[in-house]
């Protein structure tokens, strides 16, 4: 196996892998959508609205999976100080926020016909909302620190702190929820979900995962190029003997 930890080798690796993973994502997505709309039966309680589940649950799965990916990348940044791990972290955060947003939006659109309201401060929805806030905060941190290596280390620490905190947040939100509203209205199937509904769900979840992996690879490639561009620009500015560069520095 080639050493894909080297950014240049990683780029050629991405170039070869990308068409395959993109094709796989599209095929699985088409299959999943077909199963959802033409095979999966309406739920006996929720009717056709259950079709929203095939978006909502994969998005919820990705919102957690992407945080796990980010945590692993954060460890890579701190332990091995690897630029590829930095790029992996940075590329994952907006994707995580996007899929978490999809989870919230579809949950809300599912909730309106089911509960009669756009939003319920249900334990699960609220935890996802907090996760969304954490993603947004991490993106803000990435944007605030200019030097990429320093930004990566700061974001890595915050990501790890968040990873430690997420179970605590989940626990406390659950606790808070049972305190305020004892009965939860919301149940998706429970363990006894019919196979005709489970199969499309699994296909959609795998399709979403491949979609994320494809987008993540593309975004990592962008980050590697962005760093290279930054380094070359600085280098060019240092080498050029342009008088503008020697001009008196602005007063601090």
């Amino acid at each position: 196996m080639p050493n894909i930890a080297n950014p240049t080798i990683f780029l050629s690796f991405v170039r070869r892998l990308l068409p395959w993973s993109a094709a796989l994502a599209i095929i699985l997505l088409t299959l999943g959508l077909y199963l959802t709309f033409f095979v999966a039966p309406p739920d006996y309680q929720q009717g056709e609205t259950v079709k929203i589940m095939y978006l909502h649950v994969p998005a919820a799965w990705l919102s957690l999976f992407i945080y796990i990916v980010m945590t692993v990348a954060a460890l890579g940044t701190l332990v091995w100080r690897h630029p590829l791990a930095d790029a992996g972290q940075k590329a994952a955060a907006p994707l995580g926020a996007a899929f978490t947003f999809i989870c919230l939006a579809t949950g809300s659109l599912w909730g309106k016909p089911m509960w009669g309201t756009w939003w319920v401060w249900d334990a699960r929805l609220t935890s996802v909302l907090v996760l969304f806030l954490i993603y947004l905060a991490l993106i803000a941190l990435w944007q605030a620190i200019e030097e990429p290596g320093r930004a990566a280390r700061a974001a890595a620490i915050m990501t790890l702190v968040g990873a430690v905190n997420l179970p605590i947040i989940k626990f406390s939100v659950d606790w808070w929820n049972t305190l305020h509203q004892p009965a939860s209205v919301f149940r998706i199937g429970g363990p006894a979900i019919a196979i005709s509904m489970l199969l499309p769900l699994i296909v959609m979840a795998i399709a979403a995962t491949f979609l994320f992996l494809t987008l993540h690879m593309m975004a990592i490639r962008n980050e590697i190029l962005r760093r290279r561009l930054r380094r070359l620009t600085i280098l060019a500015a240092e080498q050029s003997d342009a008088p503008a560069y020697i001009a008196p520095e602005p007063a601090r």
């Binding site: 907090v130 806030l133 954490i134 947004l136 905060a137 991490l138 803000a140 941190l141 605030a144 620190i145 320093r150 700061a154 620490i157 915050m158 702190v161 968040g162 905190n165 605590i168 947040i169 626990f171 406390s172 939100v173 606790w175 808070w176 305190l179």
Partner: peptide, 29 residues
Amino acid sequence: VTVSLRRGGLLMAVLVLPLAIPVLIFGVS
């Protein structure tokens, strides 16, 4: 985390407030 930022105050609040939710929940309870 925001020590090197000249104006990190708002960013710090954004970073930290979600993490303070458990304290708030159990504190108010």
